[in-house]
Design a binder for these strands. Structure first.
Length: 274
DNA sequence: GCCATTTGACCACG
DNA sequence: CGTGGTCAAATGGC
């Protein structure tokens, strides 16, 4: 686990950068009251976030019990090591389901993070997140559950869209012409599972992303249209500092909860009022 | 030692 | 309060 204190400092740095950008935008505004109002709100959100973080000194970070009551619930995961399972539960939008006799390979790398016995289900449900959750803030998750015995039938439910760019096999991850260009799923192919990638000709890609790419962050090309996070959000141009994943999780959850996906590439800002 | 998986704990939601 | 989704320490394979 990353050092919470230093991560916190990075978050603060990012927020300060965001606030500066918001100020610049405000200064560039000329006359449109509606736009100015939105920018003011954005500015206020950055300021409030900084205030909240600055009111939680590192001593409290190291001693979660002290600050428990003062934390917003969605900050607990970030601030508080000891309290697991605290998160913003996703909504049911942007799901896709697929059933097949074997668990399908969709060309992305997944990491299992949980397994749960489901009521009235014979088999446990397996939870996977994208391997690039932390290095590229890819929010895609999937759930795989065996639903039938004979013939074996596995139901895979996808949540969110991949924003990562490290495909195991780009040939099978093409496009979804009905929706956003970052939706990169197609179900009519199969590949070996991630665990069997030693045999896969695309193994070189998996080596690039070892350690879940904690070190090998790949900056998305600004000319490409198949990522949905604005680069302003993700990287500090001046310091070239790396993002902190937990903060980006929250940012992204705001995206997923409050915005339509077709708006995502356009807006580097969020509405924290929701 | 590194990394992915396992599994119990935790907490949001209905 | 029960269920399900996620976290993170423990564990095991390489």
């Amino acid at each position: 686990m990353a050092n919470i204190g230093s991560s916190c400092m990075k978050v603060i740095e990012e927020l300060e950068t965001g606030r500066e950008y918001a100020k610049q935008l405000r200064d560039m505004m000329n006359g449109n009251d509606e736009e100015e109002e939105v920018v003011k709100k954005v500015l206020m959100s950055f300021t409030n976030s900084l205030l909240l973080l600055n009111n939680n000194p590192t001593s409290e970070i190291d001693n979660p019990a002290k600050s428990e009551d003062s934390q917003e619930s969605n900050c607990k995961t970030f601030i508080n090591k000891e309290r697991r399972g605290c998160y913003k539960r996703r909504r049911n939008s942007q799901t896709r389901e697929h059933e097949s006799e074997t668990p399908i390979e969709d060309g992305h790398q997944w990491r299992k993070y949980g397994q749960k016995v489901i009521l009235n289900s014979k088999y446990p449900r397996n939870y996977y997140r994208c391997t690039h959750k932390y290095d590229q803030n890819c929010q895609a998750t999937k759930q795989v559950q065996r639903v039938e015995d004979n013939p074996p039938l596995h139901k895979t439910t996808y949540y969110g869209n991949h924003t990562c760019r490290n495909l195991i096999n780009p040939d099978i991850i093409l496009d979804d012409s009905n929706s956003h260009p970052s939706v990169l799923l197609r179900f009519d192919n199969s590949l070996p599972t991630a665990a069997k990638l030693q045999d896969c000709p695309f193994i070189s890609l998996t080596k690039v992303v070892k350690k879940e790419c904690k070190e090998d962050i790949i900056v998305p090309s600004s000319s490409s249209n198949d990522y949905i996070l604005s680069p302003e959000l993700t990287f500090d141009n001046s310091s070239n500092s790396k993002i902190h994943s937990d903060y980006m999780d929250e940012m992204s959850s705001v995206f997923y909860d409050s915005a339509g996906f077709d708006q995502l590439p356009l807006s580097p800002f969020f509405n924290f009022d929701e």
